[in-house]
Protein backbone atom coordinates (compact mmCIF):
# COMPACT_ATOMS: atom_id res chain seq x y z
CA UNK A 1 0.00 0.00 0.00
CA UNK A 2 1.41 3.33 -1.03
CA UNK A 3 1.23 6.06 1.59
CA UNK A 4 1.74 9.62 0.48
CA UNK A 5 5.06 11.20 1.53
CA UNK A 6 3.43 14.10 3.37
CA UNK A 7 1.11 11.74 5.16
CA UNK A 8 4.06 9.58 6.20
CA UNK A 9 5.67 12.67 7.71
CA UNK A 10 2.44 13.58 9.49
CA UNK A 11 2.00 10.06 10.88
CA UNK A 12 5.62 10.03 12.02
CA UNK A 13 4.94 13.26 13.90
CA UNK A 14 1.92 11.61 15.54
CA UNK A 15 3.92 8.56 16.50
CA UNK A 16 6.74 10.71 17.88
CA UNK A 17 4.19 12.51 20.05
CA UNK A 18 2.88 9.17 21.26
CA UNK A 19 6.36 7.97 22.20
CA UNK A 20 7.08 11.28 23.96
CA UNK A 21 3.88 11.10 26.05
CA UNK A 22 4.53 7.48 26.94
CA UNK A 23 8.10 8.29 27.97
CA UNK A 24 7.09 11.29 30.11
CA UNK A 25 4.31 9.39 31.89
CA UNK A 26 6.43 6.32 32.48
CA UNK A 27 9.40 8.33 33.73
CA UNK A 28 7.28 10.41 36.09
CA UNK A 29 5.68 7.22 37.42
CA UNK A 30 8.97 5.41 38.00
CA UNK A 31 11.17 8.33 39.08
CA UNK A 32 8.77 10.72 40.83
CA UNK A 33 6.14 8.19 41.88
CA UNK A 34 3.24 9.86 40.04
CA UNK A 35 1.02 6.82 40.21
CA UNK A 36 -2.78 6.98 40.58
CA UNK A 37 -4.17 5.64 43.88
CA UNK A 38 -4.40 1.88 43.34
CA UNK A 39 -4.56 0.27 46.75
CA UNK A 40 -5.69 -3.35 46.76
CA UNK A 41 -7.24 -4.11 50.14
CA UNK A 42 -10.75 -5.48 50.55
CA UNK A 43 -13.10 -4.92 53.49
CA UNK A 44 -16.63 -6.08 54.26
CA UNK A 45 -18.77 -2.98 53.56
CA UNK A 46 -21.48 -4.19 55.98
CA UNK A 47 -18.98 -4.48 58.89
CA UNK A 48 -16.95 -1.28 58.54
CA UNK A 49 -18.00 -0.04 62.01
CA UNK A 50 -16.56 -3.20 63.59
CA UNK A 51 -13.37 -3.32 61.49
CA UNK A 52 -10.29 -1.55 62.94
CA UNK A 53 -9.08 1.06 62.30
CA UNK A 54 -12.35 2.21 60.67
CA UNK A 55 -14.25 1.53 63.90
CA UNK A 56 -12.57 4.71 65.17
CA UNK A 57 -12.22 7.00 62.17
CA UNK A 58 -9.96 10.01 62.66
CA UNK A 59 -6.42 11.35 62.55
CA UNK A 60 -3.39 9.46 63.92
CA UNK A 61 0.04 10.99 64.29
CA UNK A 62 2.72 8.62 63.03
CA UNK A 63 5.76 10.84 63.42
CA UNK A 64 6.56 14.55 63.36
CA UNK A 65 4.83 15.93 60.28
CA UNK A 66 3.41 12.55 59.28
CA UNK A 67 -0.21 11.58 59.81
CA UNK A 68 -2.66 8.88 58.85
CA UNK A 69 -6.32 9.82 58.50
CA UNK A 70 -8.98 7.10 58.51
CA UNK A 71 -12.27 8.12 56.94
CA UNK A 72 -15.62 6.42 56.65
CA UNK A 73 -17.83 7.67 53.81
CA UNK A 74 -21.56 7.07 54.07
CA UNK A 75 -24.63 8.78 52.65
CA UNK A 76 -24.31 11.79 53.03
CA UNK A 77 -21.34 12.56 55.25
CA UNK A 78 -17.70 11.87 55.98
CA UNK A 79 -16.43 10.81 59.35
CA UNK A 80 -14.42 12.63 60.69
CA UNK A 81 -16.13 15.86 59.62
CA UNK A 82 -12.98 17.90 60.25
CA UNK A 83 -9.30 17.25 60.84
CA UNK A 84 -6.58 19.72 61.81
CA UNK A 85 -2.94 19.31 60.86
CA UNK A 86 0.09 21.63 61.08
CA UNK A 87 1.33 23.17 57.82
CA UNK A 88 3.90 21.02 56.07
CA UNK A 89 2.33 17.75 57.24
CA UNK A 90 2.20 14.71 55.03
CA UNK A 91 -1.18 13.06 55.44
CA UNK A 92 -2.03 9.61 54.14
CA UNK A 93 -5.79 9.18 53.80
CA UNK A 94 -7.47 5.79 54.05
CA UNK A 95 -11.13 5.80 53.05
CA UNK A 96 -13.85 3.22 52.73
CA UNK A 97 -17.61 3.26 52.20
CA UNK A 98 -20.35 1.59 54.21
CA UNK A 99 -22.95 1.86 51.47
CA UNK A 100 -22.62 3.10 47.85
CA UNK A 101 -19.86 4.45 45.61
CA UNK A 102 -18.48 7.81 46.81
CA UNK A 103 -15.73 10.16 45.77
CA UNK A 104 -13.06 11.72 48.00
CA UNK A 105 -11.64 14.93 46.65
CA UNK A 106 -9.93 17.99 48.05
CA UNK A 107 -10.14 20.52 45.20
CA UNK A 108 -6.94 22.28 44.17
CA UNK A 109 -4.80 19.55 45.74
CA UNK A 110 -3.87 16.20 44.23
CA UNK A 111 -6.21 14.42 46.65
CA UNK A 112 -8.80 12.65 44.53
CA UNK A 113 -9.91 9.03 44.67
CA UNK A 114 -12.96 6.86 44.22
CA UNK A 115 -14.37 5.17 47.31
CA UNK A 116 -15.82 1.78 46.41
CA UNK A 117 -17.77 -0.34 48.89
CA UNK A 118 -15.72 -3.47 49.53
CA UNK A 119 -12.37 -1.71 49.10
CA UNK A 120 -10.06 0.64 50.99
CA UNK A 121 -8.75 3.61 48.99
CA UNK A 122 -5.58 5.44 49.88
CA UNK A 123 -3.95 8.69 48.78
CA UNK A 124 -1.22 10.89 50.30
CA UNK A 125 -0.67 14.62 50.20
CA UNK A 126 1.66 17.15 51.81
CA UNK A 127 -0.27 20.25 52.94
CA UNK A 128 2.08 23.19 52.60
CA UNK A 129 -0.42 26.04 52.56
CA UNK A 130 -2.38 27.12 55.62
CA UNK A 131 -6.12 27.42 55.37
CA UNK A 132 -9.36 25.48 55.41
CA UNK A 133 -9.75 23.04 52.57
CA UNK A 134 -13.07 21.71 51.40
CA UNK A 135 -13.29 17.92 51.14
CA UNK A 136 -16.14 16.84 48.86
CA UNK A 137 -17.75 13.67 47.62
CA UNK A 138 -17.35 13.91 43.85
CA UNK A 139 -19.24 10.80 42.82
CA UNK A 140 -23.04 10.83 42.79
CA UNK A 141 -24.30 8.87 45.79
CA UNK A 142 -27.95 9.83 46.13
CA UNK A 143 -30.44 12.61 46.86
CA UNK A 144 -28.17 14.43 49.31
CA UNK A 145 -24.92 14.00 47.39
CA UNK A 146 -24.33 17.76 47.15
CA UNK A 147 -24.42 18.02 50.96
CA UNK A 148 -21.63 15.50 51.46
CA UNK A 149 -18.54 17.48 52.44
CA UNK A 150 -15.99 17.84 55.22
CA UNK A 151 -13.10 20.10 56.18
CA UNK A 152 -9.34 19.80 56.37
CA UNK A 153 -7.79 22.67 58.31
CA UNK A 154 -4.09 23.33 57.95
CA UNK A 155 -2.78 25.43 60.84
Amino acid sequence: MHVHRQERFWLAAGLAMLVLFAAVITTSAVVDGFVPPSRIQSIDPTKVAQTPPFDHPGLRKIADGAYEAYYVARVFSFSPAEIRVPAGSRVTFYVTSTDVEHGFSIPETGVNTMVTPGWVSSVSHTFKQRGTFLLVCNEYCGAGHHLMAAKVTVE
Binding site: L18, A22, A29, S38, T116, W119, S121, S122
Partner: peptide, 22 residues
Protein backbone atom coordinates in the same frame (compact mmCIF):
# COMPACT_ATOMS: atom_id res chain seq x y z
CA UNK B 1 -8.65 6.41 40.71
CA UNK B 2 -10.39 3.14 41.56
CA UNK B 3 -9.09 0.99 44.40
CA UNK B 4 -8.67 -2.72 43.71
CA UNK B 5 -7.04 -2.32 40.30
CA UNK B 6 -3.27 -2.59 40.05
CA UNK B 7 -1.31 0.46 38.91
CA UNK B 8 0.44 -1.63 36.24
CA UNK B 9 -2.83 -2.40 34.46
CA UNK B 10 -3.78 1.27 34.57
CA UNK B 11 -0.42 2.15 33.01
CA UNK B 12 -0.98 -0.41 30.24
CA UNK B 13 -4.38 1.06 29.40
CA UNK B 14 -2.86 4.56 29.23
CA UNK B 15 -0.46 3.32 26.57
CA UNK B 16 -3.12 1.52 24.52
CA UNK B 17 -5.38 4.58 24.76
CA UNK B 18 -2.63 6.72 23.25
CA UNK B 19 -2.50 4.30 20.31
CA UNK B 20 -5.60 6.05 19.00
CA UNK B 21 -3.31 8.95 18.10
CA UNK B 22 -2.45 7.08 14.88
Amino acid sequence: LDPGIGAGWKWLHTMTTYGVVV
